[in-house]
């Protein structure tokens, strides 16, 4: 069997396990979904694009933070703790494939949740983004951010229990930053906030709904650029940390 086949087989098993474990199913699926739906009805029904941007930014960040980041961290730490990763490394799957398959279910669940929010917005008649491009960037950048952050977080998480604490700071930051950036003015020193991990998601969502993506921003460059730069930096930092320090074995 090819490595892709092995990755699919393992990812499928992992996905079934998420659905089978009630605690994980509630924290990774039910809570983000319920909160996201609440926001859709609270802010999304407004005809003001700013309010919809706020709802979408919050939905993106709760799914990225709780649905994907926390779930992926917990899964990897749990599988390492029980030496499942170590055993699977004696099978035919590649190391990259093993990590992809372990993290994939969280990403799939997150994308399904976002799809559900999209449908709800369409049904309740929320305004559409004037420019979907920054929104797509926010999604892709956000995925890269939370997946690399999850792998980096496993480095400082010795046990599955501890992951409830080690994932808190970034979860909080992601939610707060995305929410703040969707509403703060896009001028002056506020723009520095965009460097906070997750903040570009809010900024890009705001651009998607309110326009001005290519308008001249700081030093005459398109308004989009600082957010895109910030969106790239953090995954690179987290990815570098994870690549350098990731451990397969709980012992050492």
């Amino acid at each position: 069997m090819s490595d892709a086949g092995r990755v699919l087989a393992l990812a499928g098993t992992e996905l079934r396990l998420v659905l089978r474990n009630k605690t994980v199913a509630v924290s990774s699926i039910v809570v983000p979904l319920a909160v996201g739906v609440f926001w859709a009805f609270s802010f999304g029904a407004s005809t003001q694009p700013g309010m919809t941007a706020m709802a979408v930014a919050l939905q993106l960040s709760i799914v990225l933070a709780m649905g994907i980041y926390v779930t992926a961290t917990q899964t990897v730490v749990g599988r390492r703790h029980n030496r499942v990763l170590k055993r699977l490394r004696t099978s035919g799957i590649s190391d990259t494939g093993l990590l992809v398959a372990t993290v994939a279910p969280a990403v799939v669940i997150g994308l399904v949740q976002l799809g559900i929010f999209g449908i709800i917005h369409a049904v309740i008649g929320s305004p559409w983004p004037v420019d979907p491009f920054p929104l797509v960037l926010a999604l892709l950048g956000g995925l890269a951010l939370v997946v690399t952050a999850a792998l980096a977080t496993t480095v400082v998480t010795p046990s599955p229990e501890r992951s409830q604490i080690t994932t808190l700071p970034l979860t909080f930051l992601l939610l707060a930053a995305a929410a703040a950036l969707a509403v703060v003015p896009s001028q002056g020193w506020w723009q520095a906030l965009v460097a906070v991990p997750g903040a570009p998601i809010g900024r890009l969502t705001q651009l998607a709904y309110e326009g001005g993506t290519w308008a001249a921003g700081p030093v005459g460059l398109p308004a989009l650029l600082p957010a895109v730069a910030a969106l790239l930096v953090w995954p690179v930092v987290f990815g570098y940390l994870a690549a350098r320090r990731f451990r397969w074995d709980p012992r050492h």
Binding site: L17, R79, N82, V84, K86, R87, S91
Partner: peptide, 15 residues
């Protein structure tokens, strides 16, 4: 690893 089978000292299972 294609030619080698390994039994770890403990664990390695998804309960």
């Amino acid at each position: 690893r294609e030619r080698m089978g390994v039994q770890l000292q403990e664990g390695g299972f998804v309960d």
